[in-house]
């Protein structure tokens, strides 16, 4: 999948001598319309946009992303709306990769094959399924590959060496390295040096794979991890949405400003 939009985005960032910036927002947060506006606006600065399809029992998410997810569900978002958000987004931003991220039950209820088909129709570029680890994800991942959808594997500090190598071998264009033992939104409790050491181990295994680092990345910490192929920021963005709503300010403007600042820090 060397000419995938995901691969191209990493190449473009590399040309500018910087890591790719990946954002995470929740579809339907706080409404369907607003989340599309936010997505369009931040994609001016983000290289790849991750879009969460919210689940009400997210076992690996911290407070910020939970708040966004519950808010979106409360405001009526359904899985079909998530696809229509992507579809509308791609109408004007056809070269910006979109990665859907969520929990397996939603895919299971939709039906795996139908879900992949729907992803294809809406031009989804990649998928992250938090609770479908290797090797349980093998069949689903290969179904995705057949349809040229990137199935993105995760590696964590607890992943053993043997397992890490198997996962890298089975991965597509991109691998997600979880910086520390934490749910999303935790404070970065490991030194950037240590994180980059682990990152390098993965990178050395296969230089062709794009390795991104996520979890605990904020405006404060992003610069210290600049060496990575890509960096994911989620909770810090979700938190801004929450704060803007509280202060009755414009979420689109405020969130875009956060993403702009994040981008400036890694230029």
């Amino acid at each position: 999948m060397s000419n995938s939009l995901i691969n191209i985005s990493f190449k473009n960032a590399k040309k500018e001598n910087r890591p790719a910036l990946l954002t995470y927002t929740v579809a339907g947060d706080n409404t369907k319309k607003k989340s599309l506006e936010i997505l369009k606006s931040i994609s001016e600065y983000a290289d790849i946009c991750e879009l969460g399809f919210p689940h009400n029992t997210p076992i690996a998410d911290g407070g910020q992303i939970q708040t966004s997810a519950y808010r979106a569900i409360k405001n009526g978002i359904q899985i079909n709306d998530v696809f229509s958000i992507v579809k509308s987004f791609k109408k004007t931003k056809k070269n910006k990769p979109i990665i859907l991220m969520g929990y397996y039950n939603m895919i299971y209820q939709f039906n795996e094959n139908k879900f992949i088909k729907k992803c294809k129709e809406s031009k989804v570029d990649g998928l992250i399924v938090v609770d479908l680890p290797y090797p349980e994800n093998k069949i689903f991942a290969s179904k995705c590959k057949k349809k040229k959808i990137n199935f993105i594997q995760l590696i964590s500090p607890t992943t053993s060496k043997k397992r890490r190598n198997q996962i890298i071998k089975d991965s597509h264009d991109m691998i997600y390295y979880i910086s520390m033992l934490s749910t999303t939104g935790g404070k970065l409790k490991v030194s950037p040096k240590k994180i980059l050491q682990e990152y390098t181990k993965i990178k050395k295994q296969n230089k062709l794979k794009n390795i991104v680092i996520g979890f605990g990345i904020t405006e404060k910490t992003i610069k210290s991890l600049k060496k990575a192929d890509g960096l994911v920021v989620g909770s810090a963005i979700c938190k801004e949405i929450t704060n803007s709503i509280k202060k009755r300010q414009n979420t689109v403007t405020n969130v875009t400003n956060v993403v702009k600042r994040l981008k400036n820090k890694i230029k």
């Binding site: 690996a60 609770d131 349980e136 995760l154 590696i155 964590s156 500090p157 992943t159 397992r163 979880i178």
Partner: peptide
């Protein structure tokens, strides 16, 4: 059905 971190 667990996150990668819990595999180990």
């Amino acid at each position: 059905f667990i996150p990668e971190t819990l595999k180990k």
